[in-house]
């Protein structure tokens, strides 16, 4: 009888031991939380706004000889060549100035400037005459030493001046001529 009792006790103990041994993980409620990260860098778009026109002023040429006017993107007087000479009478006077653009974008970023090789100024009186404007050059306020490049300052701003050379063929009729300059700026 005592042996029977002992065997039963052993059986119960073995049963308990087996239960404990076989289910170590199930007896716990386990979980974990973490925070992964996602990142993005958003760049402020670069934009350009025209503030002032490239102006060659009033120019006179002779009927049989053409000439040209060069307006620099920086400081300095316009350069006249050939038969071209400033004509300070008329609606526009003879004041010249480079085109002025305001560039905005990401702070402390450099950018490149693209302009056409040649643009054509159309007569505003509706005739088909046009005058070529070539040698367009740029000057950035924040990066004055580099042509066709600029730099956005700590406020994300810059100013760009565009100069060029207007050719006036001989026999060009008097009138006003106007052209649009397509200026493209992009981060480099």
């Amino acid at each position: 009888m005592a042996d029977t009792i002992h065997r039963n006790a052993l059986f119960v103990l073995v049963g308990i031991a087996a239960l404990i041994a076989s289910t170590p993980a199930l007896s716990q409620n386990q979980g974990s939380t973490t925070f992964g990260a996602s990142r993005a860098e958003i760049i402020s778009p670069i934009s350009v706004t025209a503030l002032d026109d490239l102006t060659f002023g009033g120019i006179a040429v002779t009927s049989n000889q053409g000439g040209s006017v060069k307006v620099l993107p920086g400081a300095g007087p316009a350069e006249y060549s050939g038969a071209a000479a400033p004509a300070c009478t008329g609606t526009g006077g003879c004041t010249t100035n480079p085109a002025l653009f305001h560039v905005r974008g990401e702070r402390n970023r450099s950018y490149v400037i693209a302009v056409p090789a040649v643009i054509y100024a159309q007569a505003t009186n509706g005739t088909n005459r046009e005058l070529p404007v070539s040698d367009l050059t740029s000057k950035s306020l924040n990066l004055p030493g580099a042509s066709f490049r600029g730099f956005l300052n700590g406020a994300g701003q810059d100013e760009v001046r565009i100069g060029g050379t207007l050719a006036i063929p001989a026999g060009t009729p008097p009138g006003s001529y106007r052209a649009e300059i397509s200026l493209v700026v992009s981060y480099d």
Binding site: G31, T33, T34, I42
Partner: peptide, 13 residues
Amino acid sequence: GGGRLEIPIPADV
């Protein structure tokens, strides 16, 4: 403007 963004991804198991 622009800027650097960091957005957490909460994950639980």
